[in-house]
């Protein structure tokens, strides 16, 4: 479990469920609570940067930060250069965004597979080796069921499954729940119902997924408008019902630590 003042969460869910908007808002609010926040986007497609208000960057982790394993040695094929530990890599390669949130992106899907592999190994190493007593981490995992788990959510103490009150969305959430339980990593799996429009929505999604509801984020025209402008909800719609619901989620998850 987390030491006081640090929280590590990962957001998963169907594409378009609202993971990035909620994760970005969550990260900013957590930083305002005094946490040192590292927000990570492990999707090669952009998303989280917009919701955080961090300048979009093509750069993931540069090639020269990564070295290939010497033949005969043990361990993963690529590692960070020996003079870089996880904290140093965050300082060097994460962008600093509003409220002091650090933002690290997996890297865009335009480079060669070999480059992506280097970046991927380094990315996972950074997340795995972050010092326990420092960073709070907010992870925005790719949509769908391919990547989440299989080691990508290992850093998280709490995995938040984002689902809309639609059949496609809760079926995806159910599949993710099954994967998480099979994977055995996500001890604490909670549901965030997003785009709730009617009174019974939260109960419906909870029933369909079998998960405990941690937050109900209402459908919010102001948040949708912020998304269309590519602006962070917390800056453009700070008093919206959606941002207020994420604020209660932050309060609930930090309250116990």
């Amino acid at each position: 479990m987390g030491r006081p003042g640090r929280l590590r969460v990962a957001f998963v869910g169907k594409g378009g469920a609202g993971k990035s908007a909620i994760a970005g808002t969550f990260a900013r609010l957590l930083a305002r609570e005094g946490h040192e926040v590292l927000a990570i986007d492990s999707d090669p497609m952009p998303g989280l940067a917009f919701s955080l208000g961090v300048a979009q960057s093509d750069a993931g982790i540069p090639d020269d930060a990564v070295v290939e394993r010497v033949e005969g040695e043990e361990g993963p094929r690529f590692r960070l250069r020996p003079d870089l530990d996880a904290s140093a890599a965050v300082e060097a390669y994460a962008n600093v965004g509003p409220d002091g949130v650090r933002f690290l992106q997996f890297g865009k899907l335009t480079g060669h597979v070999a480059q992506l592999m280097r970046s991927q190994h380094a990315f996972r190493q950074i997340v795995e080796e972050l010092p326990d007593d420092r960073w709070s981490v907010v992870g925005d995992l790719p949509g769908g069921t391919r990547q989440p788990f299989f080691g990508w959510a290992d850093f998280a103490e709490v995995v938040l499954v984002v689902a809309e009150p639609t059949a496609k969305s809760w079926l995806s959430a159910k599949r993710l729940t099954r994967l998480a339980r099979e994977d055995g990593t996500a001890a604490n799996l909670l549901l965030v119902v997003n785009k709730a429009r009617e009174a019974g929505d939260a109960r419906l999604v909870a029933e369909m997924t079998g998960l405990t509801v941690a937050a109900v984020v209402p459908w919010d025209e102001d948040l949708a408008e912020a998304e269309r402008r590519g602006r962070p909800p917390i800056d453009d719609a700070p008093n919206s019902g959606a941002v207020r619901a994420v604020a209660s989620l932050v309060a609930d998850l930090t309250g116990g630590t």
């Binding site: 169907k14 594409g15 949509g143 769908g144 069921t145 391919r146 059949a167 496609k168 079926l171 995806s172 599949r175």
Partner: peptide
């Protein structure tokens, strides 16, 4: 899609999907 939902939109229902 590795997270297949087309059945729902085609109208075969969630159980068949």
């Amino acid at each position: 899609d590795s997270n297949p939902n087309l059945g729902i939109s085609l109208g075969v229902g969630d159980q068949e999907t």
